[in-house]
Design a protein around this nucleic acid. Structure first.
Lengths: 135, 135
DNA sequence: ATACGTGCAAACGTTTTGCACATAC
DNA sequence: GTATGTGCAAAACGTTTGCACGTAT
């Protein structure tokens, strides 16, 4: 791994990500950090997100909106993704380690990470009393 | 849903996908179907994959190589993705329905689909006796 | 005859990269 | 002083789309 110097931009990106729990995209992070560093570029955001991911400080969450989402909570926790508004939420479910144990029963590679993602409508998007509206 | 006429290209795409169990990308499907229909275009492949997905005949599997993978097995089954060669494999694990039940304990939206994916090194890529080689 | 599908090429949105300058160490 | 980081703009990449023509029904 290459040496890593300090950078204010990287610091700002990381701290912004730690405060948020809604797993923003690179664009959202860029717009936010721009307030503090108006000359920052989107390329810098992407470069730093990649660096932070390489060092294991953040994780990348593939979504269904063809954008990557980023999460400063690197613990192994499940996610919910709304197929309507594309929001990403953390779910609370303890001890998912048994899943990889189960998987090993029929698999002989090496498992490093387990990703559990649920898709559906979030609480705000589900429409209890109305017919589905064509959008 | 729009009416759907028969098309030889769609048929070829679907049958190719049914025969394969390694969940190829659109490009791989294109290269293969091209042997049979040399004038087929990549756009046609994408359009038909989208149609087949809308009708529930195939499913899309997001991978970690920023390409979509396609699977003619639409049952809810877990996947393994190799972080080295980016191959996608099916795993055999019965009855994953309890996972969404667990998730509902701390979630009040509506879950339609559960996606369980393991990441690591596949059997071919794991190197039992050698140090990791920089690539 | 009409609606749906195709090939082609151009456009799209996200992410990456080459370069010259700036900053950290 | 040297390696690493940045801003900018252009390129790259997978995917989508507009259009005129082809095919299914």
């Amino acid at each position: 791994m290459k040496a890593m110097n300090y950078s204010r931009q990287r610091e700002a990106i990381y701290h912004f990500l730690m405060e948020r729990h809604d797993h923003p995209t690179a664009e959202v992070i860029y717009q936010q950090v721009k307030q503090e560093y108006p000359r920052i570029s989107l390329g810098t955001v992407y470069r730093n997100l990649s660096l932070l991911e390489e060092t294991g400080q953040i994780q990348r969450i593939p979504s269904d909106d063809s954008k990557e989402h980023y999460d400063a909570n690197v613990g192994n926790h499940p996610h919910f993704i709304c197929t309507k508004c594309h929001c990403v939420q953390d779910l609370t479910m303890d001890n998912l380690d048994f899943l990889s144990t189960l998987a090993y029963q029929n698999f002989n590679g090496e498992i490093n990470r387990t990703q559990l993602t649920f898709f559906g409508k979030c609480n705000a998007c589900k429409e209890p009393n109305e017919e589905k509206i064509k959008n």
